[in-house]
Design a protein around this nucleic acid. Structure first.
Lengths: 159, 159
DNA sequence: TTTTGTACGACTCATTCGATCGGAGATCAT
DNA sequence: ATGATCTCCGATCGAATGAGTCGTACAAAA
């Protein structure tokens, strides 16, 4: 469950690869093209191209046309979060259909729905999680995230 | 992104409904059948039946045949976690295909894959999150979960 | 101007998910 | 005890989402 799409996988791989060729120093920046990434990770070129275009449109990377063209990171790796990447490629985070809806709600269960509120809490927590991890964090091998829960704290559990 | 299936939605709603009719007291337990839930939440009966069957097989609920039959909670609401429900209906948690694989790995990217490790960390955190929230928590309206991240702590971020 | 490589849109195919149908088993009423 | 009714249960069908492909247009370096 909760498997993310191939686009997201490819996008993250590509970003990691592009970032690896810049080292945070613009002077050493090396432009990397679609074909190079596709061959490195055995990804269908056309599909990867589509992914890169989408991310370019979102400002995550900068595209450069023509021979010797390719892609460069559009932001500092510390400012690119996993959440941004996934949102760019898969749309906004939403565990259910009625996550962030306007008035046009077609959900027939809304009136008696009893799970919306708790699921929204979980969704919010997941978003914080994804938004707290950056591309920079993905490159180092350091532990990144701690999670703490108070939901299961004991308060006189009789069984 | 990360939208969970209708089965999961229906399953959680049904569980909440079943639990509401038991109040943790077996003496007051009221058997509730598929049709009742389906009408209450406007869910296709046959599909809901399938969902309930699956959860019964997992031990989350107990099924009772014959007239006046139906379903009852199989465990204490405090011992039923969201993770268990979702795993029962949608299979094990896995952000990518190579999440928990044996030797038969067909992923062509594995050799040069640079995102597997960090994604496994995120996956683990999500699992803790889903496993820390119980059906009992879903019924009360109290705040349940806090999350703390150390990944984005400032250490001289220049921009 | 020619060549090379990216950007972009439309299209096809496969897989998963939602939804449906008919049969088997169990319990209550007679 | 026996029938009738109601439920659970497995197998099947159709629809929608996503993965992957093809062809054209555009931009920059030689």
């Amino acid at each position: 469950m909760l498997k993310l799409s191939k686009k997201a996988d490819y996008g993250l791989m590509a970003l990691q690869h592009i970032a690896s060729n810049q080292y945070g120093d613009v002077a050493r920046a090396r432009v990397v093209n679609t074909k190079e990434i596709a061959e490195e990770y055995h990804i269908p070129v056309e599909l990867l191209a589509k992914v890169l275009q989408t991310m370019a449109r979102s400002g995550l990377i900068d595209s450069h046309n023509g021979p010797k063209g390719g892609y460069l990171l559009g932001k500092n790796p510390r400012e690119i979060t996993i959440a941004q990447v996934l949102e760019s490629l898969e749309g906004p985070l939403g565990l259910m259909d009625c996550s962030h809806e306007k008035e046009s709600d077609t959900c027939m269960q809304r009136e008696h729905c009893n799970i919306r509120t708790p699921l929204l809490k979980i969704q919010s927590s997941i978003y914080q999680l994804l938004n707290s991890m950056t591309l920079q964090d993905m490159m180092g091998g350091t532990p990144l995230i701690t999670i703490q829960s108070v939901a299961t704290e004991q308060q006189g559990v009789e069984r």
